[in-house]
Design a protein around this nucleic acid. Structure first.
Lengths: 224, 224
DNA sequence: ATCTAAATTTAGCCTCGACTAAATTTATTT
DNA sequence: AAATAAATTTAGTCGAGGCTAAATTTAGAT
């Protein structure tokens, strides 16, 4: 029987570094600490150890934040692939709703085998997006490019398909679900208020007035 | 977010204590160490801490081994229920074979939620046995009574249904599978050799001669 | 250019759960 | 009943990965 390795937290560090560095800049100690729900001093310690280890996963310079090496990025994408495949699979085969899956997937993502990953991916037909519409890294660990636009940028007469809902709060997710605002759904913008940045949107027969706080979290693909 | 608690290894201790104490006698330090693949001294340390904790899970007296309290037993059955439901579910929904499931279930059993447990139990129709025929503890954490007989006790002319195959070695499991000796299958004993304790058994159209080493691991229910 | 506030790092400490080596207790054999 | 062997426990150590408090660095504002 193999040693179980302390790869558990490391995976969490890598995953969050990936997310924090997506916009190009290094991940700060503080931001990482907030994401991981631990103290900044602990992050510094862990990052310093990580940066020193044999297969170099992260690049680190004091006070400058941390970034992933190509190897570290692959490791992060592996975890993210696990997470998103698991969410998809929990929703599709066990009837979880999109506001319930995150926590469960968070725990499972660290312990499933590559074999398990392959099996659920195949069973689901190698999906490209999870239930929130987040892109699932491919089997060879590339993150597909996202060509969506925030709903907040649409204006009257434009129609679009909702691709992604970048919200984590379960209450908000349930609310959006009740408004019919879920991935795959088609919408049409009918009004725009420059004053408060609200959009009026038709979803089927429903008419919803959506504030900025929501419209920046919904990403769509325009229908020409 | 909750603290993740060091309940991981504790669950392993409880599970193995449960198994070792099934025949009535306390689990010895040495046996536990072998099962857990750690050194006896480590077991002593952990058991002493466990025995001191607030919800008392184990009963321990120096040099006398360890047993489970009712609470500890419930905790053990919870893990075992997780394990066996997971094995069943991996086989039935993801196409794992019975020689592949153990390792994966071993890792998953510690991280699934009670909600997840309920969902797979329901999806599987609340099964009572796992793919090896092991009894699955009920939702209220009782271990059903096992009324099977070892195949080794059968004699010519007796027919039976295989209920349980108490083997862990993947090679042996694949071998038994190739002989058709899996739970649910009906067999009939045609010969018995008192000399070497071999049984000749008809499985469908197959005739197998089975040695003691195998016949003590297969448990059956007689067909009257 | 300096001063202050915020971010980060350092230093030292703690708990967990393993380990080794040595001591002790129990069991077996003569 | 003593002697040896086997099992168990004790004592002390280690690495992981957190934490706090204090020191230091960077950044923003006057």
């Amino acid at each position: 029987m193999k040693k179980s390795a302390s790869t558990q937290s490391v995976q969490d560090y890598l995953k969050h570094i990936y997310e924090l560095t997506e916009k190009g800049s290094p991940a700060s100690t503080n931001d990482l600490a907030r994401e991981l729900d631990i103290k900044p001093a602990s992050v510094t310690g862990m990052i310093q150890k990580l940066a020193a280890e044999k297969p170099t996963l992260v690049e680190y310079q004091k006070h400058q934040g941390v970034t992933l090496t190509p190897t570290g990025k692959r490791a992060a994408l592996e975890v993210i692939r696990h997470h998103r495949l698991l969410e998809t699979w929990l929703v599709q085969t066990l009837g979880y709703s999109w506001d319930e899956v995150h926590e469960e997937a968070e725990r499972l993502e660290h312990v499933i085998s590559e074999d398990f990953e392959r099996r659920i991916a195949a069973a689901l037909g190698n999906p490209t997006r999870d239930p929130h519409g987040e892109l699932i890294p491919t089997a060879d660990l590339k993150m597909p490019v996202d060509d969506t636009t925030p709903l907040s940028s649409l204006r009257p007469s434009q129609s679009a398909t909702i691709q992604r809902v970048a919200a984590a709060d379960p209450n908000l997710l349930r609310h959006l679900d009740s408004l019919g605002l879920t991935p795959g759904i088609q919408i049409e913008v009918t009004e725009y208020s420059a004053f408060d940045n609200n959009l009026t949107v038709k979803v089927g027969r429903k008419i919803n007035v959506l504030g900025l706080n929501i419209t920046t979290k919904i990403f769509v693909e325009l229908i020409s």
